[in-house]
Amino acid sequence: MENKDSSKISRGDLLKGIVKKGGLMMLGGLPWAAYVEENKEEEFVLRPPGAVDEKKFVESCIKCGICVEECPYDTLKLAKPGDDALTGTPFFTPRDIPCYMCTDIPCVEACPTDSLLKDLVSDDNNDKYDINKAEMGVAVIDRKNCLAYWGIRCDACYRACPLLDEAIVLNFERNKRTGKHAMMKPEVNADICTGCGMCEHACITEKASIFVLPREKALGKVNDDYIKGWDEEDESRLDSNNIYIDKNQVEKSTLDYLNDTGSLLNDE
C-alpha cells in the first residue's frame, strides 16, 4: 500500500479485501447457522391447531405471540432459547396443559401471518370453524406401561377424550391371567384423534403412558401401490398425490377383461 495512489485500488488489494470480508462473514455466519439449524431441528414439537406443516411454520411464523395471548387456557407457550421449539414460536406441552379445543379457535383467528390457517380447521364449506379437524398430533399408547393393558381397570384417557368413543375406543378382552375378569384396552383411532392431549394430561401413570406425538413422527405412510380395494374412499389417496387415472381409458370391466381370451389364443 505504501507507495500507491490511495484513490486507486489494485486488483490484488480488491481481491484481498473480498477474501477478508468473505472470510469474516463465514467466521460469524457458520456458528450462527449452526445454532439456528440446531434450534430449528426440534422434531417433536406440538403446534397450535391449524398450524401449517412444520417446515412452512418455522418459515412464516413472525413470533408475535398473539396466539399465545389469545389462548384462554394458557396452553400455548412461546419457546424460549433452550425449549424444544424454534425460539419465539408457539408450542404446547399436553402433560402440563392440553389444548381444550375451543370451538371458536381464538389462536387461529388471531394469527396475522397464516401460520395458523383457518382452512385447516374449518368445515368443508370453509365457512365455520371445526376444531375436530385439527391435526396437532396423534396420541400413542405405551402398552407396556398402560395399566389397562395390565388388566387393571383404568379408563382415564378414554373419559378425558373430547371425542369419546371415536378418537379413543375401549376394546374388551378376556383377562386370561385371572380367567374371570375383563380387560378394557384403550385404542387410538389416528384418523380421528386431533392430538389435543387431554388423554396425556389425564393419564394416571407417573410418566404418561398415552402421549401425543407429531403425526409425521408417530405415523407410517403406505406407498401408492397399496390401495384398500374394499374402501372406496381409499382411492382418493392417489388423487391427493396427483396421480391421474383416466377411468375412460378402461373400456371393459375387470371380468370382461379376464374372460377375453382373444389375444391369448392368437399366435401371430
Partner: peptide
Amino acid sequence: LVLGVAAYEVINPIGITVRE
C-alpha cells in the same frame, strides 16, 4: 434464505428480551 428460517430472529436479543 439458506436455512429456511428467519435467522436473526432466532438470536435477536431485542426479540428474546421483549418476549420474555
